[in-house]
Every structure is written in structure tokens, then in C-alpha cells.
Design a protein around this nucleic acid. Structure first.
Length: 829
DNA sequence: AGCACGCCGACT
DNA sequence: GTCGGCGTGCTC
């Protein structure tokens, strides 16, 4: 519970606050501050407010004023949760920008920004008021149940009570119990995030004396050999590391908890329980960085620093394995030396222990890590430490742009072209790379974008001098680029040398690699076994009942899965339409590749890495560990294998079917394919050995494949750019997509036509569509897309967005709009 | 987002 | 004749 200092009685001002609620509602709401909280209210603090009939929410104070709302009576704030603001004013300004730029609500931004533990009103704790006697017979059933439960368990959370009563609206009951003075309601922020505690063991100082120690051993070895083992293990461990925990000691010595306790009782060991950070880092690794940059790296580093003098954003265009990370480390060191913070953004998938450990070696305890595989307590801990300036460097995925930085000197966006920087569902549909540019600007800091295959938008900005540009064209340590061999599937099919989906060339290379005890990665950008099941007699294809997609067969479940809504059904053995038993699997995914390879190479150790095998918390790390420990010969996977894999013994990469990438119906398909292929290829071969990439395709002469072989990004860029120019696409134009959804396709048609026409009144030819997207129904909602293209030059996007917003709002007030969902997506991917 | 108020089908 | 389905609108 917060204590409220006695406010001076003369201070009879009435304060009102505007709060952001964690909901998708379009404005902020005004609450009245109870007089006694006047001295404690502040922007950026969390408050508990009642919103609607019975719901309590954690809201963020976005403004404080003295003006009473005229049209309604403001409700009172129930409680202030923080002694100090947990959101900075700069963050609120950032939230506001994100909401404006990406056309969503501040509440939605708040939801994406705050770890949920900081906004759970339902974690509020309820305890009995022990000083108060009451007559249980006067209570109603529900009140009685709660007090009974509190007799058994001293503390209940709101969610416990929801479960207990089996209903969601528990606030009225609690309110009545509270008013009867029977319970306390508290939100103990500081206690909610229990620090992790561990027992540390030290040796009693008297055993620093060798004679005493020897004597101890003699006694123990005779009477309690397990205890002797424990002491021995302690001595060994304490030589290797500064601190020894009880758990480590038990594990290392093989002695039981009892033996350790006996030694503690004998005062041989001293036990001390200490809070430790959940975010482990080994204190012993305070090693100082000793690597030296190559001349090329050094030049790049100086070049970047020079360009920062005149440019806020610099693109580091460096080929794979050119040692960008080392350049980053030097840059980070330089920035934190000035006392400022650094944010190092990486795509989620690349945030492996590998890179984390590597950076911890240099930055020890001043580096924090933030990504979605962290649980909520860990995230709150990072939040607090960033807020207090304890962390100087944050290594994180896209959502870490929302951390409460104090003074950001630099943001590094590695692999800036990655589409995973863009969030699509739910809103805010933001791109962390672009948001980072704004964020850095607010802090008067710099941004370094890094990529081997920059996005065209970024490269365009660099070429037109909006961004600085530094090139790093040499692989670090003289590692050669991989040899790329393109193999025609058509030709091998004709020669009958294909074995299922593998060409003879790929098979030979895989076998050779396994013989050499090297590793292989096979890339197939589709998960599951077969994406389509088709009846050979009547051509019937099972489709999802909720979406407009055919169902993918998954062998491990034996079911047909929908990759859009998660629907599953049993795979039929006879055609449901004509009764034929001739059902055929068309196409293939990672599961089938793995399956067929296991038949062709029964002795090879195979593993698969895709969404299905990495869903649980540690499974990704397990696969990576197995790969590192060389327990895997061949890894089959989707795009995941292109990212975050960095293993020295992978010498062969196989692209099972490049056409699936190249044929994608999207104006970015070529850009994407190049990025994908270049990135996967970059995984092949490291120090000392040239790697090999086998690209299997029906179209070996495809322009993009040629550009990949020649590693000619510049050529790709110039050819693609011409086409983009012709069709008014980025980087020359900015796109805003408006998806409109409805359960009824006819109503949707009318709604989409109406909305598009309204938009045309303002934007004319810039409005394209409505068109049905490739998949025109997902989760029972039909979809139409309206695309708006705006010239990059001389367009006020702020004004355009305001007009779009206005048009949508106007549409939503018409009867026609009933039942529709309108979702703007700014700079879509 | 949640919840209430409000208008049409299968039950005591 | 009521209980209850979920469709729309409001929440400071």
C-alpha cells in the first residue's frame, strides 16, 4: 500500500487527469484526483480507475490539469500505483507519435509497450482485515465464500476470486466487502515482482588455514564421505568462479541437500540467501574486450562516426560475415563511455544465446536483454533497470523500442530489412526500424542500420543522401563467399536423376558433407507435409471451414491444419465428395523433406526447424544446442534457418525449391527472394573452408538467381527500382493499406466500394481497389483491401492520415458500416 | 475490451 | 406469458 503524506490543507485545488486506458478506444478519459492524492499525482504514474460499470483498469496518467470537464461528472481515481513515474514523458510523446503515424489508438500502443505485469489490475491482492470482527451470517453467499477462502489462504488475487466465484464481475462484491471494512485491497507493486533468491555458500574463514582444512578432511573422509565430497567440490568451484550457490554445489559434488545442511550446521559452510537478478549473467565474465578490428572494419567504424556528424541515420551495408557485430561493439563502447544508453535491435529469431553471450562478455551487467520469450517478471525487471539507467545497453526484439530509455545515444537496427520488425496483428502495426529513427531523434541520438541486403526504402534513403552510407564489402578473416550451384529440377527430372525432391547434385553434396563430418542446412519455405490434398478422381480439395485456404496435411498429427486460424480436422482416407480412395498430396513442406530424406539417408541424423518444432519456450534453443553439439547432420527448416544460425561446421546449404520464393505474387517478391537466398547462402562456410550452396529451381536463368550468384545487390536494386518507379511503388511512393472485413461477402462488397469511393473524393487516383486479397476470408471474415499510394515528395502524410481517419470515422457513423472491421496498415509489408 | 440495454425464438 | 440469444453503443 502506498502511504500518503499529509497534504497541506491549504492546498485545496481540484486536479483532473487525462489517462490512457489499455484499450482500443479512440480517446483518453478524464478522472478526478481525490484531494489527498494531489501531491502524489504525476504524469507517467499508473492509476487504478473504474471504467464502465464494474471494470477496473490500470491506466497511465498522460496529463494533469485543473479544468473540470463540462459535459459530465468525472469519476475519482481509485489509487495511485507508483511512487515514481514508470513511463517517461518522452515515452508518452513516442506513444502518441506511434498512434498517429500508424493510425491506431494510444491505448493499443500502451498495450504493446507495457509488460502485462505492469497493467494487471487483476493481480491486485485481497487480504482480510484482521483488526475487524464481523458477523459472517450477515454476508451474502458470495461474500461468505470470499471470507472463507481468505481464512484458508491469507491472500487472494482478483483473478483467484474470479475463479472462485466463477464469474467475471467481482468488483461489486469486493467493493461491498471493502466498504464493510472486512477486507484490504492492495496493489503491492514492489512485492509483486519477487526477486529471484539463491543461497550462496562460503567457507568459514577458519578453513582458509591449510592445517585446519586438512584436519577437517581427515575427519570427514572417515565419518561422512559425502560431506568431504561437498567440501572438495566447493574448493574446486570457488577456484573457477567468484561465487558458489548451493544448487551448483549439490549438482557438482553429488552430495545431497542434507550433507550441505550438516556442513552448515557444523559451521564449515556459511549459507547466505541473496536476491539475484533473474536475468543471469556470469559475473566472472567481466572480461575486457581484446579483439582488434581489421583495417577494413576500422575504416568503416571511423566512417560511420564521421557521417554521424552530419547524418542522424547511417546505413552499414556489409556482406554476410563481414564482422558487423564487432564494429557495433566498438560503437556501443564509445557511446556508453559518454554515459548514454544504446539500443541494439535484432529480429526475435536472431536473439539466440550465441549473440547474447557474446555481448555479455563485453558489457557484463550493464546489458539487458528483452524479447518475447521472456516471462513477464523478467520483462518488468528489464523495464525497471532501463528506467533507473542501470542498463546501458539493451539487446532486444522490436518491442524494446518501448522501453523507458533515459538518454539514448545510439540505436543499432541489425538486419534492418527483416520483415519481422513490422508488427501486423494486433495494432499498433508499427515498424520498429522506422519507429527507432523517430525515437532516436527524440533523444538526439543516432541510428545505425545494418544489413547485407538492405531494404529498398533504406537503400534509397542512403543513395539520396537522406541517410549516410558505409559499405563493408570484405568478409572478415578472409573467409570466401560460398560457391553457388544452380541445378535445374526440370533437367534432372528429364534425366530421371531426381530422388523425390532432391537433385542428384544436392544428394551428392549432402552425402559428402556428412562423410566429412560437416553439417547441412536444407531450406524449404513451407511447413507441414503437403499444402494441398487433392482427389485424383474429382479434384476435390479439403478447405478450411473458417478461411479461404486449402488445408495443409501434417504427418505428425495425421491431421489437416489451417495455417491461418489453427483449425484442424482428421485427414480423410476416402474423398468426401466422390468416395474415391485416390487422394494425392500436392506440393511439399519441411515435414515431407525431412521424411523423404530419412528414407534416402537412413543413417543421417535429421532435425527440423519450423514453427511447429519451435513453438515451446526452449525448443528453439534445444535445436540450436544440438546443432552446435553436432548431434544433427542435416537441419531442414523454413525461413528460420536463414536467420540467427551461425555455425562453423555448416558447409552445405540446399534450397529445395527456389521457385516458391520467386513466384510469390507481390511487388517485393524479387527483393525478398534475393534477401532470403543471400541470407541463407551466407550461412555456408566459415573460417578455413569455402561453403557450397545448391539452389534447386525450374528456372535456372531467372534474373534474381543470377544476381544472387554474382552477389550483385546493386544490380538487383537498379533493375527493381525501375519497375517500382513505373508502378508507383515504394520507395517512390508511400503505401497505406486499408483492410475492411465483414462476415458477409455481399455486405462487405458494398462497404468496401463505399469506403473506397469516399476516399477517392479526397485522394482520387491514389486510391486503388477495393480488391480481394490472395486469401479473401480468414476466421470467417471476408476481406477487401483498399490501397492508397502517396507520392513521397511534397505530400503531407500527417494531413493525408487525418483525412483518412476522418473518412473512416464518417463511414463508421453510417448504417452501412455495421458489423465491419476497418484496419489501416501504414507502410505495410 | 467488457458490459448493459434491447429486440426476437423455445420453454415453464 | 418468460428466459435468454447476441447485436449495438457507451464507458470519463
Amino acid at each position: 500500500m502506498l502511504e500518503f503524506a499529509q497534504a497541506p490543507q491549504s492546498n485545496r485545488r481540484t486536479l483532473f487527469v487525462d489517462v490512457i486506458l489499455p484499450l482500443a478506444i479512440s480517446r483518453n478519459y478524464t478522472y478526478r484526483v481525490p484531494f489527498e492524492m494531489n501531491d502524489h499525482i504525476a504524469i507517467g504514474k499508473r492509476v487504478v480507475v473504474q471504467f464502465g460499470k464494474s471494470r477496473l483498469y490500470t491506466a497511465i496518467v498522460a496529463g494533469v490539469g485543473e479544468l473540470a470537464p463540462e459535459k459530465y461528472e468525472a469519476k475519482y481515481i481509485i489509487e495511485i500505483l507508483d511512487n515514481k513515474p514508470i513511463v517517461t514523458e518522452r515515452q508518452l510523446q513516442f506513444w502518441h507519435w506511434v498512434a498517429e503515424y500508424y493510425m491506431c489508438n494510444e491505448g493499443e500502443v500502451m498495450n504493446a509497450a507495457l509488460p502485462s505485469a505492469l497493467k494487471l489490475a487483476s493481480e491486485t491482492k485481497v487480504t482480510l482485515n484482521k483488526e475487524y470482527e464481523f458477523d459472517k451470517t450477515l454476508l451474502n453467499d458470495k461474500e461468505f465464500m470470499i471470507t472463507e477462502a481468505l481464512d484458508l489462504q491469507p491472500e487472494l488475487t482478483i483473478s483467484d476470486i474470479v475463479k472462485l466465484l466463477g464469474q467475471k464481475t467481482v468488483m461489486p462484491v469486493l467493493k461491498s466487502l471493502f466498504e464493510k471494512n472486512i477486507i484490504h485491497i492492495s496493489e503491492e507493486v514492489s512485492e509483486r515482482f519477487k526477486p529471484r533468491r539463491k543461497t550462496f555458500i562460503t567457507l568459514h574463514p577458519s578453513y582458509n588455514n591449510q592445517d585446519n582444512l586438512r584436519e577437517l578432511f581427515e575427519i570427514l573422509e572417515r565419518r561422512a564421505p559425502k560431506q568431504a565430497d561437498a567440501v572438495l567440490a566447493f574448493i574446486k568451484l570457488s577456484r573457477q568462479q567468484k561465487t558458489v550457490t548451493k544448487a551448483e554445489l549439490i549438482e557438482d559434488s553429488g552430495a545431497g541437500d542434507g550433507s550441505i545442511r550438516a556442513l552448515i550446521d557444523k559451521e564449515v559452510f556459511i549459507a547466505e540467501e541473496r536476491a539475484i537478478s533473474r536475468l543471469r549473467y556470469d559475473e566472472d565474465e567481466e572480461a575486457i574486450s581484446t579483439f582488434t578490428l581489421s583495417d577494413v572494419q576500422q575504416t568503416a567504424l571511423e566512417d560511420i562516426q564521421n557521417q554521424f556528424a552530419s547524418k542522424d541515420v547511417v546505413l552499414l551495408h556489409g556482406v554476410t560475415a563481414s564482422g558487423k557485430t564487432q564494429v557495433y561493439i566498438r560503437l556501443i563502447e564509445a557511446v556508453i563511455a559518454t554515459g548514454k544508453q544504446v539500443l541494439y535491435l535484432l529480429p526475435e529469431i536472431a536473439l539466440t544465446t550465441h549473440i547474447i553471450e557474446r555481448l555479455r562478455i563485453y558489457f557484463g551487467g550493464s546489458i539487458g536483454v528483452y524479447h518475447s520469450r521472456f516471462n513477464d517478471n523478467e520483462r518488468v525487471e528489464v523495464w525497471q533497470k532501463v528506467l533507473q539507467g542501470e542498463y546501458k545497453v539493451i539487446l532486444g526484439a522490436r518491442s524494446s523500442v518501448f522501453l523507458p530509455f533515459q538518454d539514448l545515444g545510439l540505436i543499432i537496427v541489425d538486419e534492418e530489412h527483416e520483415t519481422s520488425y513490422k508488427q501486423y496483428d494486433p495494432a499498433p502495426r508499427y515498424n520498429a526500424r522506422d519507429a527507432a529513427v523517430y525515437l532516436a531523434n527524440m533523444h538526439k541520438g543516432k541510428v545505425l542500420l545494418g544489413s547485407a541486403t538492405p531494404s529498398f526504402e533504406t537503400y534509397y534513403n542512403a543513395r539520396t543522401n537522406k541517410y549516410g552510407l558505409v559499405e563493408l564489402n570484405e568478409r572478415y578473416g578472409g573467409v570466401q563467399l560460398p560457391l553457388i550451384e544452380v541445378v535445374s529440377i526440370a533437367a534432372e527430372t528429364k534425366q530421371k536423376t531426381m530422388q523425390s525432391h532432391f537433385t542428384s547434385v544436392l544428394i551428392a553434396d549432402v552425402q559428402q558433407a556428412i562423410e566429412n563430418k560437416e553439417q547441412v542446412i536444407l531450406f524449404q519455405n513451407r511447413r507441414g507435409y503437403a499444402p494441398v490434398l487433392m482427389c485424383r478422381v474429382c479434384a476435390y480439395t479439403p478447405k478450411c471451414i473458417n478461411c479461404d485456404v486449402s488445408l495443409t496435411f501434417h504427418k505428425h498429427t495425421g491431421k489437416l491444419h489451417c495455417h491461418y486460424c489453427g483449425y484442424k480436422e482428421d485427414s480423410p482416407s476416402i474423398c468426401p465428395a466422390c468416395g474415391s480412395t485416390h487422394l494425392e498430396y500436392k506440393g511439399f513442406g519441411t515435414e515431407k523433406v525431412e521424411d523423404e530424406l530419412s528414407v534416402l539417408m537412413p543413417d543421417a541424423r535429421l532435425a527440423r526447424m519450423d514453427l511447429d518444432t519451435t513453438r515451446s519456450r526452449n525448443s528453439l534453443q534445444n535445436i540450436l544446442n544440438d546443432l552446435e553439439d553436432k548431434k544433427i547432420d542435416v537441419l531442414v527448416g523454413t525461413q528460420m534457418v536463414a536467420k540467427g544460425l551461425d555455425f562453423a561446421d555448416v558447409t552445405v546449404i540446399g534450397i529445395i525449391n527456389a521457385d516458391s520464393l520467386l513466384k510469390y505474387p507481390d511487388y517485393r517478391a524479387n527483393e525478398r527472394s534475393f534477401q532470403m537466398l543471400a541470407q541463407v547462402s551466407g550461412r555456408a562456410g566459415r573460417r578455413g573452408k569455402q561453403g557450397k550452396v545448391v539452389i534447386q529451381t525450374y528456372d535456372p536463368s531467372h534474373r534474381v538467381i543470377r544476381q544472387v550468384i554474382e552477389n550483385d545487390y546493386a544490380d538487383l536494386y537498379s533493375t527493381e527500382l525501375e519497375e517500382r518507379k513505373g508502378f508507383n511503388y515504394p520507395p517512390f511512393y508511400r503505401i497505406i493499406n486499408i483492410d475492411i472485413k465483414h462476415q458477409n461477402p455481399e455486405i462487405l462488397y458494398n462497404q468496401a466500394e463505399y469506403l473506397a469511393n469516399e476516399l477517392r473524393k479526397h485522394f482520387g487516383e491514389r486510391v486503388i481497389g477495393p480488391e480481394a486479397p490472395l486469401i479473401n476470408r480468414i476466421r470467417n471474415y471476408y476481406i477487401k483491401s483498399i490501397m492508397l499510394k502517396f507520392e513521397r515528395e511534397n505530400t503531407s502524410m500527417a494531413k493525408a492520415k487525418a483525412l483518412i481517419r476522418e473518412t473512416i470515422t464518417q463511414f463508421q457513423t453510417t448504417k452501412l458500416s455495421k458489423g465491419s472491421i476497418v484496419q489501416p496498415d501504414v507502410d505495410p509489408y
